[in-house]
Design a protein around this nucleic acid. Structure first.
Lengths: 219, 219
DNA sequence: TCATGATGTGAGCAAAAGCTCAGCTCGACA
DNA sequence: TGTCGAGCTGAGCTTTTGCTCACATCATGA
């Protein structure tokens, strides 16, 4: 394993044939990561599954890491796209605060349902690859900004919170819970219930608490 | 990399000298994982850092995986111990519901502060190792049971929730948020604030909501 | 003191996997 | 029909690394 050997930028595919080759390679990588896991994902196996020679693979991806990173980038872009779509769909002003939260959460839960196994492998392995942290940041930063700026417009519904802190807490919690739910699929906990629970979690955290008094509570 | 070659149980150390060897090996493994990461953690490097020969390492750990798994087991046991301690410390009946939640969360946040880098590597890599999922389960199952059984005693403070679902949601969210906070250390978000935010998150999710009416809220 | 088993050593084997390169095919264009 | 370059091939080189084994050393009980 010669670690970092060549970091020269490889040629970009121009002809349709080459586009197809690159696409096959990425699809094969995703398939192997999803079904056989990180350890089984070596460049020879990817090339074989893609139906191209190992040499072709290295024509477009200078290293194994760059291959996985490229796949992660694609995966991340898709995720960010879903979030942006959800935001613009909810920005008509027709939905209440509560309804909007539920809408976002439903989008996130649905996103995690798409390809949870691949998502897991990428989340676990990409951060330690060269450039992997950048890939992660290129999604998480705008995603957080999107959430934060929405929260900003909803100040009147919120208790006194620091928006940065609240964004961090909410994004992390929603991501983690919906991710793990997809992987472990606990009995009783289907997607729709998950949306409900996460909405409770988020709303309970954000909403203005009632003045203490009447409602039955002890201590 | 001969994958699975020998799975024979290796001898358990009996003399003090051997105990020390085993301990050195585990400490070296932890050190390398923490400071140099998963890729740098090969058996030769571990042996070198531990100051023992590679042969000695294989006398006690039949494979690289068993070595990491053993470390994970130790790490996990420590974590479960902290939780159990927190539960017994809070079981005097002197603390209110809110105070107890805060007490648990403080313990969890403190736990994640101990060795976050190592924790991250183990959480990311152990699940895919042979027997790794069992190690994870041997902590997460009793931990969840502990939380669940406490919630059960607090029914009168809770809104109508399925305890299994609530346990899953809370444990996952608290773990993920405190873990990520330690790794990213966002400005503004110190440990004490984290405890506060997570307590808000958990209490907002669990507590009986107020009857709709007077308190200022829109929509 | 000696025997015996536990413990420690490290050169080196073998397999895995990243990656190269010399030469091939294919297709667009003149 | 010929040229030229983009694209494709796969045997095999090289490095890494998990792991073995023949031998040395240590500790303990008789």
């Amino acid at each position: 394993m010669p670690s970092i050997r060549s970091e020269s930028p490889r040629k970009k595919p121009t002809q349709a044939r080459a586009q197809h080759t690159v696409e096959s390679i990425l699809r094969a990588t995703a398939h192997i990561l999803r079904t056989a896991g990180w350890d089984a994902c070596n460049t020879n196996a990817v090339a074989k599954r893609a139906g191209v020679s190992i040499g072709s693979l290295y024509q477009y991806f200078p290293s194994k890491e760059s291959l996985v990173t490229a796949l992660a980038e694609e995966h991340a872009a898709r995720g960010l796209g879903v979030l942006m779509e959800a935001v613009s769909a909810a920005s008509g002003g027709k939905l209440s605060f509560e309804q909007t939260v539920r809408h976002y959460i439903r989008a996130m839960v649905a996103l995690h349902a798409v390809d949870p196994k691949l998502h897991r492998v990428l989340m676990e392995q990409v951060p330690r690859l060269k450039g992997g942290l950048d890939v992660m940041r290129r999604v998480s930063t705008p995603a957080a900004a999107l959430v934060r700026s929405w929260l900003e417009t909803q100040r009147k519904h919120l208790r006194a919170v620091d928006l940065d802190v609240a964004t961090f807490t909410l994004v992390t919690a929603v991501e983690a819970v919906s991710h793990l739910q997809m992987l472990e699929r606990p009995a009783k906990l289907d997607q729709e219930l998950m949306v409900e629970e996460l909405s409770q979690l988020v709303l309970g955290y954000l909403k203005i608490p009632p003045p203490p008094g009447p409602p039955g509570r002890a201590s």
